[in-house]
Nucleic acid binder design. Structure first.
Lengths: 224, 224
DNA sequence: TTCCTTCGTGAACAAGTGTTCAGTTCTTCC
DNA sequence: GGAAGAACTGAACACTTGTTCACGAAGGAA
């Protein structure tokens, strides 16, 4: 009479759900959000189109969850990098350069998550995604301000501007095409980090020092 | 036998073309790019849907031209403001604050031109649009660098980052909702201009002075 | 084994919009 | 005034994709 999911089934269902999300993520990383259509994602996940709807009510939900997932990873990476820094200014530098590195190493995904046209409405999760990262950066700026390293300012606005600057400079249509050269990548990350630090009021000389320190630990990531 | 367009007809045709473009622009300003659909635009321009196709080969062409037009106006305004400034640093400040004011006073249009999802491919004209504004800002940064007011840097990258910062901070989904208060608007323009100037290396104290000067002449525009 | 429930399938459906085109109206020229 | 060409109309078409659903397969209880 009563049908209960056995442990094995529960596991299989969870695995399938993850597979669909993973397929969506891979698809987005390769072809941007526009490539994330139900049919291709289903094929990639080895299920039928209809099956996707057993796990996600709609495409919007699927993409929203994808955005949330990527955002979570991103936030964790930024926190990790910033927390490992010796002081508030270094933490800010680390946070910014981490974002920069991540954007650069997964351009299409980043563009898709943040700004690429999608046919369904994912505004809410995009806003949430931004809010998380912006909030994190804002609190790092705040800490630096409180430590007396930066002038008082609207940290929320500043963090938003920083994110926009990183984004446009690194994945925007005007960003240099595919600089595969690791050294070139590092230079770019350093350049935008320097701009960001100066923007919030770090003096030029000090900013240069912070940038070099901040970029060192993430160098390896650039290759990834 | 030979049918030749009389002067009057030529004029009428040109007027109609302009009317369609104007209708598209108004529609975009009110409802964003997503609202720019053939049928509504045609109605607004007092023509039939089919007529639009006598003037523009496709929706993509219509929107591309719209983007180009707005971009032209924007560039002219920036040039005017910058050229009227007394020195290279003031010119840069004027250029940046002009862009900021324009974005703020026509948010939906700005968002639509630069970044809003569109169902047709307008990447090319968007890139061109960005390139114009970025180029202008980059040359102003260049001038300031040459004058010894700023440290040497990748001016193209810096200008791109500045545009992204302005954009995200002013029209991005996280931008404060409709600050109708003119004083608030002015403060926001000043804040982002300050961030931008510092980002390229203007010292904090000097930047604050430049910002105040630059925002004065455009105050009236904020109300518009 | 048998019956019931859940899961999976994929072809068909639905809906929104850009685009076309046969017919109509207007303009030019003899 | 009338013939010929251009411009205009708007309803029908086309095409893309997200979504549904009737049917079959698989899993769990008895």
């Amino acid at each position: 009479m009563v049908y209960r999911r056995t442990h094995q089934v529960v596991k299989r269902l969870a695995a399938r759900r993850s597979a669909i999300l993973a397929a969506a993520r891979e698809t987005a990383a390769e072809g941007g959000m526009s490539a994330v259509q139900i049919a291709p994602v289903a094929i990639r996940a080895n299920v039928a189109a209809g099956t996707v709807y057993r796990y996600f009510p709609s495409k919007a939900d699927l993409i929203s969850e994808l955005i949330a997932e990527v955002s979570r990873d991103e936030l964790a990476a930024v926190r990790r990098a910033a927390d490992a820094a010796p002081g508030p200014s270094s933490a800010l530098a680390a946070a910014v350069s981490t974002v920069a590195v991540h954007i650069l190493s997964q351009r299409k995904l980043a563009w898709g998550i943040l700004a690429e046209p999608v046919d369904v409405d994912v505004t809410a999760s995009r806003i949430a995604s931004r809010r998380e990262i912006v909030g994190e950066i804002a609190s790092r700026i705040d800490a630096a301000v409180r430590a007396g390293h930066l002038p008082a300012q609207d940290t929320q606005l500043a963090a938003t501007a920083l994110l926009g600057a990183l984004h446009e400079a690194l994945v925007g249509p005007l960003a240099t095409e595919n600089p595969d050269d690791p050294a070139k990548l590092r230079d770019t990350v350093q350049a935008v980090t320097l701009l960001a630090l100066r923007a919030v009021g770090v003096m030029d000389a000090r900013a240069r020092g912070l940038v070099v320190q901040a970029v060192l630990p993430v160098r390896s990531l650039v290759g990834a």
